[in-house]
Write a protein that binds this DNA or RNA. Sequence first.
RNA 1: GGGCAUGUAGCGUAACUUGGAUAGCGCAUCGGGCUUCGGACCCGAGGGUUGCGGGUUCAAAUCCCGUCAUGCCCGCCA
Length: 618
Amino acid sequence: MDTNNDPEENFLHAMARALSEACPDSGITELEMRYSLFLPGRDYGDVSTAIAYRLSGKMKKSPAEVAETLTKRIGTVVGISKVTHINGYINATFEEKGYTALILNKVLRSGNGFGSSRMGNGRKAIIESPSVNPNKPWHIGHLRSALLGDAVSNIFSFCGYNVEREDYIDDLGLQMAVVLWGSMNLAAKPTGKYDQFLGEQYVEINKLIESKKLEAEITLLLQKMENSASDEAKKARKMAEECVKAQYETAFAYGIYHDVMVWESDVVRERLLSSAIALLRENDLARMADDGEYKGCLVTDVGGGDKAKVLLRSNGVPTYLAKDIAFHMWKLGILHSNFRFAGFIAQPNGKEVYSTAENGREMEFGSAEIAINVIGSAQEHPQSILRGVLNGISGGRHGEVVHMSYGEIGVKGGSLSGREGGWLGQGRNYTADDLLREVKSKALEIVLKSEKITDKSSAEIIALKVAIAAIKFEFLRVDPSKKVTFEWERALNFDGNSGPYCMYTYARASSILTRAGTTDTALGERDYAEITRGYDFEIVKMIGSAGRIIEKACRELRPNVIAEYVVDLSILFSKFYENMPVLKGGDAMTLRLAIVHAVRQVIYNMIRLLGIEAVEKM
RNA sequence: GGGCAUGUAGCGUAACUUGGAUAGCGCAUCGGGCUUCGGACCCGAGGGUUGCGGGUUCAAAUCCCGUCAUGCCCGCCA
């Protein structure tokens, strides 16, 4: 849409034409040309290229001469007011009135959809996160996964994918067996939030395991749990469900919702595994080890490394990897299951989360073209094996599995170990619940000082939104691959590069529009003759790049590029705000109102992708 | 030992995939700014041999090789 009006595109095409005339065998593709474009220092123009340097040898001219030749051949370009060259660089300057109209009118037309794209073309993506074991509360590490998963889901959806938000519950793991043992052998009665209770029990029991040698007893429990008809299995499932419900209270507090959860016990019961194994053997991806250390095991050699990986132990019991492979075959529609689904909890967003269940009905989950797993970097190796095996099966005919790897979170003293209780702090734990409580209380302190907020009840609501924004932004502003060390001090600071700063910018923009009595329809399409080469046009240009930013975040699975962008836009708006009066802007008032409107809309759209809600006052 | 990731001012980060003009932003520090649209703000200052050493190139934080540091992974655990 509007490509023939986009000056950058026009410049690019003009360049390509000039190049093919001046040097037909340059070997430079249009894509390379596109990549060569960069944003120059402010005095040079609005878009530049240093392509002349690359042609210098081929054309046997100096870069400056090449740039001159190309510039002459470019001639006039729609939307570009001038093309200049200096020291071999070619610089183009946008015709600012036309560009301003193009961008501001597009924001008006597109509204909440501004910046969206059809990149995904309706393809289905299953995004899995945070898949926390059902025996403890979410700690800040799990929260990172949940927030990344939520943001990536939002971004994919905005980019035209059909997104299914899925959560995997490992209710058959050792961790579950441990807390099951606790419920059968310890006197403690559940108090408070159930996930917190279980998490604390888990730490206690692990101390007992070391001192009292309980491994054998717990391993026996684990085996009994594998048989879904056993009392142990039923009790474990019941505990796990209660724990997940408690964990989801946390999720809801953060505004995180899912479409479907899949339980490991259901994967086992549905016997997906035997079909998966058969398929692996057909494709020569698994073999029986006849001798060596894995004698009697079914193993796979896929996944690099010099060592085979066990799928079925010599006693016939499947490994986690085997179950995971089967599960991912379901995700990609390579295998069909008889999974049945039933509503699990009604979520505050009005949608039910469905869960695999023994007594449910068949539903249209699974069978995606892309399966994104938001999982810590520690799982890189198993994830690469999983990917390798599935690629071997699908041969590219089915979709792909993507590991969205993120660096794990540490705290000053060490790790957040569930077993050793690293997530327990003094007075406040490193849990998602305590984090929200602490940050909200800080936010409330500040909101109560605001002159704009008069009644106590709305102060509470706003403080909660500010707190959520502060936390989400703090977690999402960093590249996912980076490991981070959590510090309360930073989490409780709302200044500068922060979610609340962006919200504040939004609130100020809203306030101006309210004062002006401006509505979207009042801002019609018009010329913007009053635009200057000041902060106003800088903002217009930045807004013009919003769509590219979102696509980049989507392609690279990096919500941080959006966070970065919103802060930069907010900073720019603050400068504009201080220097260019809007309501007293005289002839420029309408233009400036349109800019304020556009900034407000773009901040709204962008922070929403991060799961952050804008407020009109704070 | 092998594999993966990370290393950018006191601290936290961006730019690295696609090499371009003065390495951007925030916190902290120091100095300014509210009778003017919301001070969770703005303006200014100081602070960088981009871990280190080579190489490629007209041009390297970015690409290549080596090296150091930190973390993670390499189980018939999950």
